[in-house]
């Protein structure tokens, strides 16, 4: 029950956006009616879905860069480093 209340207050906090800053400790320990508990369970599922969506997007963002062509500079630098220096 405590976890449910906590999770639902995270959500409330998020939806209220910037007014969130004014959220007091009392919001965390307020009495949670049955109806809100049900909503809390629903938002737990919602939270899981949102986390999955974030995970997918995170990989997408990373892979976007991984799939970019590598600038020639990288291989040029490596090639120069690999060659014995001209002083030899």
């Amino acid at each position: 029950m405590r976890n449910v209340a906590l999770t639902s207050s995270i959500y409330t906090f998020g939806r209220r956006g910037r007014t969130l800053r004014t959220t007091g400790v009392e919001d965390m320990i307020e009495h949670v009616p049955m109806e809100d508990q049900r909503k809390g369970a629903a938002s737990l599922d919602e939270a899981r879905l949102r986390q999955q969506a974030i995970g997918v997007k995170l990989r997408q963002m990373f892979d976007e860069v991984v799939n970019e062509p590598v600038p020639d500079e990288f291989l040029d630098i490596l090639r120069k480093a690999e060659k014995p220096s001209g002083e030899r």
Binding site: F13, G14, R15, G17, R18, L20, Q51, I54
Partner: peptide
């Protein structure tokens, strides 16, 4: 990080 990211995304921060 997961929680904070979610909070930021939802709040439009």
């Amino acid at each position: 990080a997961r929680r904070a990211l979610q909070a930021i995304l939802e709040s439009g921060g």
